[in-house]
Amino acid sequence: MNSSVSTIKNSAVKSYLKTIFEDIGKATLFTTRFFKEVVKPPFEFKEFLWQCYAIGYKSLPLVSITGFIMGLVLTIQSRPTMAKFGAESWLPSMVGLSLIREIVPVITALICAGKIASGIGAELGSMKVTEQIDAMEVSAINPYKYLIVTRVMATTIMIPILVIYADFIGVFGGFIGYNIHENMGFYRYFTNVLEHLEFLDILPAVLKTFFFGFAIGIVGSYKGFNAENGTESVGIAANTAVVTASLAIFIIDMIAVQITDLFY
């Protein structure tokens, strides 16, 4: 009896590992195809611009609220600790440095992963289930170039722009939080933040957001494009897209931090 149970467990583990490695292999081929298709004409500029609008502009309200709250809450929470050491004057620079280097890029990317990756996964999954992608292939249209390349390029470009925008909103939120208990003009506050920022604080934080955007786009597209038949697979594609994209963001951030640390 024990041996049969053990055999079943081993079989289940082997099947699970096989599924994971097969999925990794398919995802690698899917990503490799992107780099091949992105340089081949024709280029779908109209669809690309529409995706930039849908991904970037329509995400502004959510990013604005998130960025403002991050700056406000971090300032309010940090003030008592800084006051204990008599370092309240360092609060603007500390908050600005924390927001720009790590908090805003990661949190904004995670917010976008939840909104954008799930949206791409659900949209493409729905098109796959209703055989719209098959219809495009029959009509001599390259669905990968039209659907995947445009979305991945849009996320790769728009996520860094959203993060830079959220940086400014976060600093403004910090300014509001600081002036709840103190009194400092915005120009002086903003100057205090910029005085303590260096090139190596800004460049890595911006560069890694391009990888965040690429991961969000490619994961959402892969999950949706490879959805199985049935309406249930649309929800599964959207859900797994969010989870996988969020995990990819943490892994990319961990690697980026290790690389950046070499230059300090």
Rank of each mutant, 00 (worst) to 15 (best):
L49G: 09
E47T: 04
P61H: 07
S59H: 11
E137K: 02
M136H: 02
P61C: 05
I148H: 05
T66W: 02
K115I: 13
S98K: 11
I107T: 13
Q77N: 11
D134M: 01
L91G: 01
V63R: 04
A140I: 02
A154H: 07
I120E: 01
F45Y: 14
T66Q: 04
S139A: 13
I157Y: 08
G125V: 02
Y165V: 11
A135W: 00
M127V: 00
S78T: 08
I161R: 03
L99W: 10
S139Y: 07
K46T: 13
A83W: 05
T66H: 02
T130S: 14
F85M: 10
I161T: 12
I159D: 01
S139G: 06
M70F: 11
I111T: 13
I100T: 14
V106E: 07
L62W: 10
F85A: 10
T150K: 08
I76P: 09
E131R: 09
F85L: 12
E88H: 04
G173Y: 05
A83S: 15
E88G: 15
I103H: 08
A83H: 11
G119W: 01
L110M: 11
V104D: 12
V95N: 07
V138I: 14
S139P: 04
A109F: 09
L110C: 06
L124F: 09
M94D: 03
E88Y: 03
M136Q: 05
M94S: 14
M136S: 01
T81G: 12
T108M: 11
G173Q: 06
G67N: 04
I76Q: 10
P105C: 06
A140S: 12
I100K: 14
Q51R: 15
G86M: 07
G173M: 05
D167Y: 12
I169Q: 03
I141T: 10
Y57S: 13
A140W: 00
L60E: 08
I76W: 10
Y57R: 10
A166C: 09
R151N: 10
V149T: 09
I76L: 14
S139I: 00
P143A: 02
L60F: 13
M82Q: 07
E123F: 05
S93E: 12
F48M: 06
E131S: 06
G96M: 08
I169H: 01
L124G: 03
K58C: 08
V138C: 11
I116H: 03
I148K: 02
G121S: 07
F45L: 15
G56W: 05
L124R: 00
V63F: 06
V152R: 01
I103M: 15
A166Y: 02
R151D: 05
S64A: 15
Q51Y: 08
P92V: 01
K84M: 14
I157W: 08
V171G: 07
L72F: 15
S93M: 11
P61N: 05
T81S: 14
T81V: 13
V73A: 10
R79E: 13
E131G: 04
L60H: 07
L124W: 03
A113R: 03
G173I: 02
A166H: 03
V129D: 00
Q51L: 07
M70C: 11
G56H: 03
A166L: 07
I148S: 04
E102N: 09
E47C: 01
V95L: 08
W90E: 15
L49R: 15
A166R: 06
M153N: 12
I107R: 06
E88V: 14
I169R: 03
T130P: 03
I55S: 08
V138H: 10
Q132C: 01
P143T: 00
